[in-house]
């Protein structure tokens, strides 16, 4: 497995506030990492560092190319509440914008780009919504549009910020199934506040609460939880894949 991104003892935050302290993380091909942790613990800050949206105060962020894939693109699905749903733009144009990079300035989208967008829409199952304006979509449909935009460029790494908010259970199931398939082609990093349901899909879990604890499996024991004071639900795997949820009251 070759490395895509490596964070080495990163300190990061906004203005004068340090949110992430001494965080190190390796993201490799085939990874499927679930990032969990309390609100304000720095989950989104960590994503922003990996995405290059904020520069760390200290430490390094390094990207790697390997021979197999020179594609160093990152697909990103932001939280939907950051998007203006009244903005006059069609589903098709949103997805196509996922193919636009800093160097592509003039003209219009090529035929192959349009085809790629259509294929991607089919893949996430919303090809019939192509001509609609985003204001006409439901929450789940909007998430799928944003997912299509994130993966249309065939990125090597897909980053999702709480994709399971504002959607129903059926959609959530569909989403994880799509992500599981995508994981065969790209690494996936997903932030979630609701660990219970993601646990059976992610391969590894990172708990972010100012600093980061990385687990090389998707099983966390109660003792481990207690040790870093991270108030989350408990997940384990038994004989039959199942999820055990336990309440934690860490001070």
């Amino acid at each position: 497995m070759s490395k895509i991104v490596e964070l080495k003892s990163v300190f990061a935050g906004y203005n004068d506030e340090v949110i992430l302290k001494d965080v190190s993380l390796e993201i490799c091909d085939d990874d499927f990492i679930g990032i969990i942790g309390p609100n304000g613990g720095g989950k989104t800050t960590l994503l922003n560092v990996v995405l290059g949206l904020i520069k760390p105060f200290k430490g390094s962020v390094e990207f790697f190319n390997n021979e197999k894939s020179l594609n160093n693109k990152i697909g990103y699905l932001p939280q939907t509440n950051k998007i203006d749903r009244k903005f006059p733009i069609t589903v098709k144009d949103v997805v196509l914008s996922g193919l636009l990079y800093g160097n592509a300035l003039f003209g219009s989208y090529s035929k192959s780009q349009k085809q790629k967008a259509t294929e991607t829409l089919k893949r996430v199952g919303i090809c019939d919504l192509k001509e609609m304006t985003i204001g006409e979509l439901s929450g789940g449909q909007m998430q799928k549009v944003l997912l299509a935009r994130a993966i249309v460029s065939s990125p090597r790494l897909l980053i999702l910020d709480e994709p399971n908010t504002f959607v129903d259970n059926q959609f959530e199931g569909e989403l994880y199934e799509i992500l599981r398939q995508l994981n065969e082609e790209m690494a996936v990093v997903m932030v979630s506040h609701d660990v219970g349901t993601i646990a059976s899909y992610v391969k590894t879990i990172a708990c972010v609460n100012r600093n980061l604890h990385y687990h090389k499996s998707n099983i966390i024991s109660e003792e481990q939880l207690a040790s870093y004071n991270c108030p989350i639900k408990l997940i384990t795997h038994g004989e039959v894949p199942h999820t055990v949820l336990k309440k934690h009251n860490h001070s």
Partner: peptide, 9 residues
């Protein structure tokens, strides 16, 4: 439409 996403591109 989405400044932050554009920045990641």
């Amino acid at each position: 439409y989405d400044q932050e996403f554009a920045r990641t591109h």
